[in-house]
Simulated scan of single mutants.
Amino acid sequence: MKQLSEISEREYFACVGRRPGMFVGRTSFHLLTAFLTGYDQHAVRHGGHGLAGWHEWLVARRGRECSHAWPGQVLHIALPDGWDNISDLPPEDEKQAIKVLFQLLDDFTAEREATQGSQVTG
């Protein structure tokens, strides 16, 4: 089994997505976005990429801008009919939002890995 320091961000996020409760206690979209924001801040503080470009990528993926930070962008994609309270989503919306969050993170990190790989080899 690999150590955390030996896995890519993509692998790490997949690990969190498979067992989110292990990372945040009660599994909720709100808690997971807070966890990921903390992850981002720590990475940037220590010289990593964190989630640099994530908000812009989500806006491009959605095809339009709005005043929401990245968690709201994810919810627009996951719940196109809207939501009332990000910290108290109905169970079915919560499940959908979390599923889409980790699908989007996987797509984002896969694209970033491919771009970084082509810059190294190119």
Score class of each variant (00 low, 15 high):
V16L: 06
G117E: 07
L79C: 13
D88C: 09
D93K: 10
T115A: 13
I7L: 08
L31Y: 11
F108W: 07
C15P: 00
C66Y: 08
F23S: 14
L36Q: 07
T37F: 03
G25I: 15
F102S: 00
G17I: 13
L4S: 07
D84V: 15
R45K: 12
L51E: 12
V59F: 15
R19A: 09
S8T: 15
G17P: 14
V74Y: 12
W54P: 03
V120I: 15
G72I: 07
R10D: 05
D107Q: 12
Q103W: 12
V24K: 10
W83K: 04
H76L: 15
G25M: 08
H49Y: 13
R62F: 06
F29D: 01
C15S: 12
D81I: 01
G53K: 00
I7S: 02
E65Y: 13
D107Y: 04
T27C: 10
S118D: 03
C15D: 13
D106H: 10
R26M: 09
G25P: 09
G50H: 00
P90E: 14
E94G: 07
C66D: 14
C66V: 05
R19H: 14
A60Q: 14
D93F: 03
V16D: 02
W83A: 08
L58V: 00
Q41K: 10
T109D: 02
G72E: 07
K2P: 10
F102D: 00
T109G: 01
D81G: 05
R61N: 12
Q73L: 09
E113Y: 06
D88T: 03
I98D: 01
